[in-house]
Nucleic acid binder design. Structure first.
Lengths: 102, 102
DNA sequence: GCTATTGTTCGAATAATATCGAACAATCGA
DNA sequence: TCGATTGTTCGATATTATTCGAACAATAGC
């Protein structure tokens, strides 16, 4: 529960971002973060076990999609929208504009 | 070697597209198709075994990224740029604009 | 029809991911 | 300091992907 791995902007790889976002659970996390700005892990778990969510947050973090900071006992997550826009202009926007499957 | 599975535009799912493009081999196929317009499977194999490539082309086809048509004994592939643009505006452009990793 | 060419399909081995309970770590408040 | 709360890490299992040789299918040309 110590320091998180956050790649620097220049280390964000397109394949990793696409892989991170190709999972339904993670994509829905990202959509919710886009709506709400930031949220704790618990607020995003949708009833899933903590260990599963922790895994998904790690993938999102290590791919460069999400930034996590400590906030007391909880962890606050936000999208790295600016960094992503710098590295892959238009990508996150296009993904967020896509209609979620019915 | 008969009819290929090509989802209709409305059946193209974002997760599937992202997953298809999260693989380095498939991403490089897509980049090459974007440059050259269309190409046969053989022209895109980069020396890899045919069975491996056939697998990747299937993923690209079934996710809706690529359209394959018979052309004699060979198969001609092209990006479904228009369909993708309609369903996920800006997505393919953003991905193709991203600099390939060095 | 025979042969060469181009891909697909099958099958099996290997690798990578996902899922989740249980144990652990860090912080807050009483 | 003792719980309670919030996540992470570990370990084990299950599912899914990747890779590739070998066999098969379709077409073209002779």
């Amino acid at each position: 529960m110590r320091q998180f791995v956050h790649p620097s902007s220049s280390d964000i790889r397109l394949e990793s971002v696409l892989h991170a976002l190709s999972d339904p659970v993670r994509l829905s996390i990202v959509r919710q973060l886009a709506r709400e700005g930031e949220a704790t892990c618990a607020a995003l778990d949708g009833g899933r076990p903590k260990s599963s969510m922790s895994h998904h947050f790690r993938i999102l973090r290590e791919s460069g999609v999400v930034k996590t900071r400590n906030e007391g006992t909880s962890h606050m997550n936000e999208l790295r929208s600016h960094d992503l826009e710098n590295v892959f202009p238009g990508l996150l926007t296009a993904i967020l504009n896509a209609t979620p499957n019915i």
